[in-house]
Design a protein around this nucleic acid. Sequence first.
RNA 1: CGGGGUGUAGCGCAGUUGGUAGCGCGCAUGGUUCGGGACCAUGAGGCCGGAAGUUCAAGUCUUCUCACUCCGACCA
Length: 486
Amino acid sequence: MPKQEQFVKEITDMNVDFARWYTDVILKTELVDYGPVKGTMIIRPYAYAIWENIQAELNARFKKTGHKNAYFPMFIPYSYLVKEAEHVEGFAPEVALVTHVGNEELPEKLVVRPTSETIICDSYAKWVKSWRDLPILINQWANVVRWEKTTRPFLRTSEFLWQEGHTVHETPEEAQEETLKMLEVYREFAENVLAIPVLVGRKSEKEKFAGAQATYSMEAMMLDGKSLQAGTSHYFGDNFSKAFDIKFASKEGDLKYVYQTSWGTSTRMIGALIMAHGDNRGLALPPKVAPVQAIIIPIAAHKGGVNEKAEEIKNALEEAGVRVEVDYRDQSTGWKFNEWEMKGVPLRIEVGPRDLENSVVTVARRDDFTKDQIKIDELATAIPALLDVIQKNMLEKARAFRDSHIVITKDMDELTAAVNNGNFAKAMWCGSRECEDKVKEMTSASTRVMPFDQTPVGTKCVCCGKNLLKEDGTTDGKVIYFAKAY
RNA sequence: CGGGGUGUAGCGCAGUUGGUAGCGCGCAUGGUUCGGGACCAUGAGGCCGGAAGUUCAAGUCUUCUCACUCCGACCA
């Protein structure tokens, strides 16, 4: 077997078994390793570097929209968790509890935060006295623990890293505006940084966050046609402020409850990157989050002058703001080519004796596998420009894939066929929980989001067939996406 | 939590009717190589997932556990 084929075979063919492909890729590329405790993962340097890039991009956006970072404790008194009825019902089954210190039992058991609404609301109740104290716009980067029954690295682990924004406002309108503003921040980030086109919209009652009045999310389509909820933004109304007694003296002098939001994204987005852009050679990372944007491979380095030139190019590119490394390891070039492709590095720069004779290097793209010669003295402008081209191309490629995998469906047969063939089904829905449950039961697809554009795509409920057309020509019911989900 | 699969060197695997552990890759050292997974030489590396049992003897048989993995149900 040729070496190239042998290499490809080391990763499961993604078209044959996507789940195994995913596991193969994340382990072989050293993104992640399993922790000793069930459901835990070790985020290795390569994945952590991606996370740091994500953090930097998001932090810039959060700060631009007026938010400040803070940090709250990871231990929450159990009594806090139970204050908001829906919230505790949603999270109680999966919270880890601390009951002992050494051999002594604690007077009150502690919750290891699954999310921080309760402990943050406790502080907010102390900090908010007057309308002058509002709004409070705080974000926190933290780890959270949810003892899930089934786990997969990045997608669902017992502990994961995330950011959670928690804001309080004077009025419902202001809080609703905040909820949608942060959803838009997420959408823009997903598309322009992760190169993942997302569907945004409102969640059904069934799918919304425990304790929220409305949940919005961005849904990303993976290459197997399943949906990954990649970020959520919640409008709480006064649910939590009533439970935690967060009141302020209004301009008019009366006491009012605040209106709140929370919004979050997690290391799950790394899973989204992998499953939205990968291929049979492994990862393909968008330049904006790639830990290494360009890898320089010296060829026939023993021939002299090659390593020196490679180092020179590296310095010039670093100067130009490119995250670049030189692979000086004593391995064959073919091995290095394949390894860096597997690791998803957007650009490979080959520096060899033949190139140097002509003062050029050979530049190979990870996104479309094209190769070009570029003059060495033009690299400092050409490489950043090329990275931009790749970033945009990856988004367009993902968008084309997504758009070609959304099917408008009119009835259950069409819906079933669509989701079983790796598509999202866009459909009309009467809005009943019965239909939502029935679709789930029959197809294993769940409702994902109701898009803001509610232009009808039919006149009857996809499930029960109820006529949704009203006499005045408008349509009752909701346009919604159904999909199998992670 | 239900149903399948897998645990033997870092990784991938072999190990016969029970007899005390092997191969490939990788790793280390030295040398030759280098434009798509090079080669030679030498070398290191294992309580066979864990516990109990059967036996003169267990990687192999029995029971129990644990972990990972895939498919469902539940969730970011």
